[in-house]
Amino acid sequence: MKNHVWRPLFVAMAVVGCILFVRTLMVPSDFGAHERGYMYGWHRKSNEAEWKAVRVKYRTAKVCWGCHKDKYDAVRNSAHSSISCENCHGPNYDHPKDPLGLSIDRTRSLCIRCHSYLPYKASDRGGIRGINPETHFPQAECVLCHIPHNPKPMNQKREATS
């Protein structure tokens, strides 16, 4: 057998071998088929821990309760009891360390998310007391008259007379 016949084959084998060697260096050791098998579980296992390490921003009302028990109790007995504190006060992060204070959203656009009246009877939206934002005191902030922590009409009157 002549050398010139085999030589290209050796080159091809060397290239394939080289690619396989580089591949073993570059592919992480935890890359492979995991719980969900070859079709759905072919991945780098350590990425799961990377996703678990994402910082939690919304830490729920349980965290607020530790310091702001008075406010927590007031809201809990009101019609707004189901609204999470952080929906209006913003995400907690590591408050009070970081940030020191939270910026409260008192804008009309926040309130009319629910209280702009839409006559959609097939969903619960049609049952929420609402206003037309274009005609209902368009220049005023809702919190001038309404108390978000205790929004019953009776309480507004009491507040106004006191």
Binding site: Y58, N87, C114, S123, D124, R125
Partner: peptide, 16 residues
């Protein structure tokens, strides 16, 4: 039936 389209979920998701 319960969804009222307030969008608080979308806001929270984007920030979180």
């Amino acid at each position: 039936q319960k969804c009222v389209g307030c969008g608080f979920c979308v806001k929270a998701c984007k920030i979180e």
